[in-house]
């Protein structure tokens, strides 16, 4: 059984690294007790959920099974967890209310998109990636990050952004979703069993930035002020 996985990892090293690199921020988060902060607690859930889903997808991909249903279902879950992180960080009540609406609205939109992208939901073998949801998620996350940056600049409460953990988390997410935003809708057409279009190196760009995102998460968690939170 392990040969199948090893063969897959050797065949697709960058996507595989993108799966296992999640362990780095996850372990750091636990070691540095960053989960004591509510936003980082949600980041812990996000990383854990991402690792589990990625491993299931890796397992399915190794066995040449269609795993896109996990990709589609993970979108609203990841959005809820990521926007939840910002819910605790953003100060403005109106932005918080807006975030709550987008969480509910986006979940409904993704469900609609799954049905819209797959006329035959029972046919798991030919299940396709959602057409709009991933792009919408990217746009929403980028917009939330920009709002958060705007608040940071306006409030002037953080003297040095380079040692502020959540800034690194935001930077990682911004880069990852920027790399994915144009590629995501194309996956609906290319990620199929009878695909004639091979995106080649472009398909690996989001994986590279997923790895970079995990590294930036780790940097942020490394700067987490352990001494201040260990007392709690």
């Amino acid at each position: 059984m392990s040969e199948i996985y090893i063969a897959f990892i050797v065949r697709k090293p960058i996507p595989s690294i993108a799966v296992f690199i999640t362990l780095l921020p996850l372990i750091l988060l636990v070691v540095r007790k960053a989960y004591l902060d509510p936003s980082f607690k949600l980041l812990l859930f996000y990383l854990f959920a991402k690792l589990v889903i990625d491993l299931i997808m890796l397992h399915s991909a190794s066995l040449h099974r269609n795993n896109l249903i996990f990709y589609n279902l993970s979108i609203p879950l990841f959005y809820a967890l990521l926007s939840g992180m910002f819910y605790y960080k953003i100060n403005s009540q109106s932005y918080k209310r807006l975030l709550t609406f987008t969480m509910v609205g986006f979940a409904a939109f993704t469900i609609w998109d799954i049905f819209h992208s797959n006329s035959e939901l029972n046919d798991m073998h030919n299940h396709r990636a959602v057409l709009y949801s991933m792009t919408v998620q990217g746009v929403l996350i980028i917009a939330i990050i920009l709002l958060y940056f705007y608040e940071i600049i306006k409030s002037l409460q953080i003297p040095n952004l380079l040692t502020f953990p959540f800034f690194w988390v935001c930077s990682g997410l911004l880069l990852y979703f920027s790399s994915l935003i144009f590629i995501a809708p194309v996956l609906h057409y290319t990620a199929t069993w009878n695909n004639s279009i091979d995106l080649g190196i472009i398909r690996t760009i989001p994986f590279i930035f997923e790895i970079l995102c995990a590294v930036l998460f780790s940097v942020g968690i490394y700067y987490f002020p352990l001494k201040d939170y260990a007392k709690q």
Binding site: I153, L161, S179, I202
Partner: peptide
């Protein structure tokens, strides 16, 4: 796709750098 993604990434990098510079 490559050009669009690179443009988007450049914008993201610029945004991060701008926030850091402007905040400082």
């Amino acid at each position: 796709l490559l050009i669009a993604s690179l443009a988007m990434l450049t914008m993201a990098f610029c945004m991060i750098s701008f926030v850091m510079y402007y905040q400082k």
